[in-house]
Design a protein around this nucleic acid. Sequence first.
DNA 1: TAGAATACCTTGTATAACAAAGTAGTATTT
DNA 2: AAATACTACTTTGTTATACAAGGTATTCTA
Lengths: 109, 109
Amino acid sequence: MEYIVDNIKSQMRKGLLEYCILLILNKKEAYASSIIEELKHANMIVVEGTLYPLLIRQKNQGLLNYRWEESTQGPPRKYYMITDKGRSLISEMDLAWQEIVSTIETIRK
Amino acid sequence: MEYIVDNIKSQMRKGLLEYCILLILNKKEAYASSIIEELKHANMIVVEGTLYPLLIRQKNQGLLNYRWEESTQGPPRKYYMITDKGRSLISEMDLAWQEIVSTIETIRK
DNA sequence: TAGAATACCTTGTATAACAAAGTAGTATTT
DNA sequence: AAATACTACTTTGTTATACAAGGTATTCTA
């Protein structure tokens, strides 16, 4: 039965990832590994192979921009930052999230 | 941009469907069309092609049972009801849901 | 200078949901 | 009685998301 629960949890997390990325970048710019760290800290496990394509997708949608920055300890990092378009999408996602939360409430009654 | 928002919403709903089905059947037994109605009422749009395979999956996992019942206005209906196993999974899903909600809180800070 | 570490990226796979079409029993209309 | 509409259940093919696993490139360190 454990595998069912794990699957449920992972399914629930899916679809919230994009939202989480924007929320994180709304606070301050960050590069992939640091985003993964923050997500892990909040119990939202993500791997590189998931995050990179997602960042690229959001960039292509005009929600993010990035700039390269030299690191003092390693190769250069791609710092992503949110755009105005991304910020206005967050407002809509906030609403969508509230809707979801109250949907669950409604169904539980 | 509207299509992005719609996609986000649909992504957020995904993964919560299984949970919602169990919550609904935890209140009282129901057949597919009535489940779709209740979900629609709570703003969680689902179509037949999504729901039927899901019910069959949950039945095969031992979370649900069903019985046929004649209808006064149409073909017989397959009434699904939750099992003990399904009920105990709900408790775990409640926890998972709480975790998700607080994850979002944490990230938003 | 060889290896370790960091960071970015790509490919193949599994799965969930959807769109659309199909099957079949029951009710209604002509 | 036959044709049509309606209700309900089911299946098939497609799309999209995330993951696992592997790959490339740059920088640091022993």
